[in-house]
């Protein structure tokens, strides 16, 4: 039963991902006084792309077509570590938060390689910039997760979530506050959203993620797009699970699960609205200001770790 529930969680994360992107795009359009496309648009985009043919540059090797598959697979495995509706996940092991961070790094590494295989300057440019952002984002991401792990005295993500569910909201410690802000900043960089990267840009010179996938088309592009949607959803689910898991089902009764789904919907909506508001109101940072942005995240994450020792 638990196993079935865990599988449902993973499927939900995967299938929900395009919808989350659709809602964000729609909300942003509304805030910017446009009508915007339907929230289901990303699904039809994916369908269309899957039906098309793959256009491959003549210089490309097998890495070019392997990269999207690796990115998609790595993101899928990451999704299996995150509890969504109840305090358990399909995969869990001690110290799996390190595995989560490094699986995301695996996907990114291959995406960078795929970008450079196209043989154009844009691919290299995107990869080089992605290398800068991801290098500096990895340490705060890991430290923030680690501070939560230290506070919860467990090193598996599902364990941390269960521990937080047992805590009272009003006893929320400074560690969690610091780690939450650090994680939120890192998530923006990790998923390539404003103000670090603009996912809707059409100008090659300002692109990071988009420059990397410029050469991709058809099913390969669909895999990458879907994977980045899943990544966004997973990171949001991770933020919810680690810092506000209250309302998750503690038993597997239909009522508890129904309530958990409703609460999850509310929390996701809140995050999506927040993201849309931020993306519509701030301008993209100059690239050389991104290290400062991530420097703030690192400082907060370091403080969170220091506080775990101070507050015990």
């Amino acid at each position: 039963m638990t196993l079935a529930m865990n599988v449902v969680q993973v499927l939900l994360l995967i299938l929900m991902a395009p919808l989350v992107r659709g809602v964000i795009a729609r909300l942003k359009a509304r805030i910017q006084n446009r009508r915007g496309a339907s929230v289901w648009r990303p699904y039809s985009d994916l369908l269309k792309l899957f039906r098309k043919e793959d256009l491959v540059p003549p210089s490309a090797s097998f890495v070019f077509r392997l990269a999207p598959i690796v990115v998609f697979t790595a993101t899928l495995v990451v999704a299996a570590f995150v509890p969504l509706l109840h305090g358990s996940a399909l995969l869990n092991a001690t110290g799996d938060f390190v595995l989560l961070v490094y699986l995301l790094a695996l996907g990114r590494f291959f995406l960078m390689l795929g970008a450079m295989d196209g043989g154009s300057s844009f691919g290299g440019m995107g990869a080089s910039r992605e290398a800068l952002v991801s290098t500096l984002a990895e340490a705060p991401f890991l430290l923030a997760l680690m501070s939560v792990a230290i506070a919860a005295h467990t090193s598996s993500i599902a364990g941390m979530v269960r521990w937080t569910m047992g805590q009272n909201f009003f006893q929320f410690s400074a560690v969690h506050a610091l780690a939450f802000v650090a994680m939120a900043l890192v998530s923006i960089a990790e998923t390539g959203r404003m103000p670090v990267d603009n996912p809707t840009t059409h100008l090659e010179l300002t692109m990071i993620h988009e420059a990397m996938v410029l050469e991709y088309s058809g099913p390969s592009l669909a895999l990458i797009e879907w994977a980045s949607g899943i990544k966004l959803t997973v990171v949001m689910a991770l933020l919810i699970a680690l810092f506000a898991p209250w309302g998750m089902a503690s038993s597997l009764s239909p009522l508890a699960i129904a309530i958990a789904s409703l609460v999850l919907l509310l929390k996701m909506t809140a995050l999506v609205v927040a993201l849309a508001l931020v993306e519509s109101s701030v301008a993209k940072l100059r690239m050389y200001l991104v290290p400062d942005f991530l420097g703030v995240a690192s400082a907060l994450a370091i403080l969170a770790v220091v506080f775990t020792a101070l507050m015990r």
Binding site: M116, G119, G123, A127, S128, S134, E138, A139, F141
Partner: peptide
């Protein structure tokens, strides 16, 4: 973690430049 991130950047460069592209 920072060392790991920097190493990833470095080897993306090595592999991308030496083995991929034209």
């Amino acid at each position: 973690a920072l060392i790991g991130g920097l190493a990833a950047a470095c080897f993306a460069k090595v592999y991308g430049v030496a083995f991929l592209g034209r």
